[in-house]
Design a protein around this nucleic acid. Structure first.
Lengths: 225, 225
DNA sequence: GCTTCGAAGATTGTAAACAATTTACCGTTG
DNA sequence: CAACGGTAAATTGTTTACAATCTTCGAAGC
């Protein structure tokens, strides 16, 4: 191990299954794939120019992320997300993110702070003509930092498991409600200000009210079923 | 849909990958597989009499559960669980299980209660000659019911993701400390008594102290590294 | 008309073969 | 003798082929 600290990343091709996973994930979270749709392995494989093997592996992962349902001998179906799914995702996310901010508040570093500020800066610059997916990405980027700061591998993993579903809901919402300018920067900046105080309990309160707000705005776009 | 409510389960063979998954999971959680060990696909496939396909799928699942680490072109390695992993599993488990009991307390039904009592009854009957794995199973069975009662698919899924790791730690502990007679029944019965009161906040407190106790006992068996 | 049955097609589950990459070994070189 | 290089073996990544199962659709029987 004589060499280290080069700025260049090692050249490792990502696995094909990883490419397939990314492609499918994006198609679902952006709504290009209908809910309940039957994802046929052969079809996907041909469309992406790979064989069924990598596709199967990607579908297993998607099932783990709760995006598709795997039925034996029937294949993968895009899950239908209803109001009760919003509640599930929200409650689980709150449980996870509370742990995240409690730990992040205790571990706040200048590096992390500057990364947060960088994201906040980009939020501030968002103007009227923004695209829903772009602000969703910013939102998620900020929350990614919360998990990163927690330095908790399994917690980050759990977050990844619902992250795409959150992305899906946020995309749908930001499409119909264009209020990111009002709430986006302000609410996240408030979170940042709380985190630097190194107070886990305060941070837990803050994330609770932040997510509660997001949750209510989300429910407003999904009327009863 | 003319037929329903038969007592018999439909005859669907589980997928081979599922069998492989169960087999590997047990071998790891019971410690039959060394930490850091390299799990070779061909070897496992031959030992279990299947091809590499199902084995690969099982390994992907195991990686999701945090049991093995997958390195591209290198294969699957059994993770090495250290003191910091205990902390991770414990903190994450607490976050999840708090949500679980909060919901279960709100949704407590007579059916669930009798299922809990059945498990408690078996805990009570445990005598001096118990085996570590048997009491671990009982312990986990009770906690499974907490998640079941929460009626939260994604939460149950998250629990499954760390359940085997909890099992691994509990097995190791129950092997060296044989105090299940003292703490096993009593602590879980107390949890049950709290849950029937339909008070989420009280339930959250109870699970916190229960897990805190389990955590401390666990740490005692894993000295610093 | 409605149900039942069965065959053909479609789709997934599994196995086996091939390709790409890593690891291990060993001789060479300075 | 440690470091470097190269070749063979081992291992994973991917593709292809085959088996098992499900779905579809239409005809037969009531």
């Amino acid at each position: 191990m004589t060499v280290s600290g080069f700025g260049i990343a090692p050249v490792v091709q990502p696995a094909l299954s990883h490419n397939v996973l990314d492609a499918l994930r994006m198609m679902i979270s952006t709504g290009r794939l209908q809910q309940g749709e039957h994802l046929k392995e052969a079809e996907i494989a041909q469309a992406l120019g790979v064989s069924r093997g990598p596709v199967r592996e990607a579908l297993i992962q998607l099932a783990n992320e709760g995006f598709v349902e795997l039925r034996r001998h029937r294949g993968a179906f895009v899950v239908e997300l209803t109001r009760s799914d919003i509640i599930e995702v929200y409650t689980l996310r709150l449980a996870l993110e509370r742990l995240a901010v409690e730990r992040t508040a205790e571990r706040m570093t200048p590096e992390l702070l500057s990364q947060m500020d960088a994201v906040l800066e980009r939020m501030k610059r968002v103007d009227d003509g923004y695209e829903a997916q772009a602000v969703t990405r910013l939102d998620l980027e900020f929350h990614d930092l919360l998990y990163k700061g927690a330095q908790h591998r399994r917690l980050e993993n759990s977050w990844e498991h619902i992250r795409s579903q959150v992305e899906f809901f946020l995309n749908a919402r930001n499409d119909s409600f264009r209020d990111f300018l009002q709430v986006g920067y302000a609410e996240h900046a408030e979170l940042r200000d709380v985190l630097v105080q190194h107070d886990p309990q305060l941070a837990a309160k803050a994330i609770q009210s932040h997510l509660e707000g997001a949750y209510q705005r989300l429910l407003a776009t999904h009327p009863q079923e």
